[in-house]
């Protein structure tokens, strides 16, 4: 079953066409990578899907939480998250002055419902909910290997840890599809390897499909079931890692005319 179905997605900024007729499908349990040179429109594509931008034309359909199909063009980011899409950011955006655990607890916001009244009176329902939030958030932190820094402030984490915290926070929103924007950026080979394992584990254990933007080719090739290549806002190729490696268009985009 397909989770995300993007058809003919186009995004214009004034006269500039940042995305031109993009078609991407992500199925259940699939890891799909988007690659392409800088400025190819990868992050813009993410921003369109997650409601940061409203695309000019095209359809974004999600078979999200609850099994119904939703068209999410132009929906607010928080609504998109509710439908089951969660993301991380290229330049890490944590809540720096909150603790690591609280960062993850924020992710639980859209899946819980305690109100102002509930918070003040703290009835048994709220207490139970709060308890579950803490427990499940801790569980997520354990999964990404941050169980020892639970009560540290997020800003005091090392770079690689911050990336993992962002993933945990995204997982807390209980997504069906996780969007990772350059998760390995700035990581050393060892950290990248751990990330590779983490992503596979998330897919296998949580049954979450993953769509990622990445420049680290080694990671992309070992991880992905399918790769989409973008250049200048256009989708120039799509296929399995082996197909992509041998695609002349892709080689041209990456290495220039002469190598094609």
């Amino acid at each position: 079953m397909s989770l995300l179905n993007v058809t003919n997605l186009t995004m214009d900024f004034g006269g500039l066409r940042a995305l031109d007729n993009i078609n991407i499908t992500v199925h259940e349990n699939e890891i799909v990578a988007i690659i392409g040179p800088n400025g190819a429109g990868k992050t813009t594509f993410f921003n369109c899907i997650t409601g940061m931008y409203t695309p000019t034309s095209g359809d974004i359909l999600v078979n999200g939480t609850g099994g119904k199909t939703h068209r999410i063009n132009g929906l607010k980011p928080n609504k998109v998250t509710e439908k089951g899409l969660a993301r991380t950011f290229q330049n890490i955006r944590l809540f720096p002055d909150m603790t690591v655990l609280e960062n993850v607890m924020i992710g639980k916001h859209c899946r819980t419902k305690a109100s102002v009244i509930g918070a003040v009176f703290r009835g048994s329902e709220t207490v139970q909910e709060e308890y579950e939030i803490v427990e499940s958030s801790y569980e997520l932190l354990r999964k990404v290997g941050l169980e020892n820094s639970v009560n540290n402030l997020a800003k005091n984490l090392a770079y690689g840890e911050q990336r993992r915290l962002e993933i945990a926070r995204a997982l807390a929103t209980e997504p069906v599809l996780l969007l990772l924007d350059e998760p390995a950026a700035g990581m050393n080979p060892h950290e990248t390897k751990e990330l590779d394992e983490l992503i596979v584990r998330i897919r296998d254990e949580e049954n979450i499909a993953i769509l990622l933007i990445e420049h680290d080719m080694k990671l992309v090739m070992s991880l992905s079931d399918k790769i989409v290549v973008m250049d200048y806002g256009k989708q120039i190729a799509q296929g399995t890692p082996t197909e992509i490696q041998n695609n002349p268009e892709v080689i041209k985009a990456y290495l220039g005319e002469d190598f094609a």
Partner: peptide, 18 residues
């Protein structure tokens, strides 16, 4: 927590479903 998160980073906050 949602308030504090909003104070810290509005965009990330929205992306977390708030």
């Amino acid at each position: 927590r949602a308030w504090i998160a909003l104070r810290e980073d509005e965009i990330a906050c929205q992306a977390m479903g708030i």
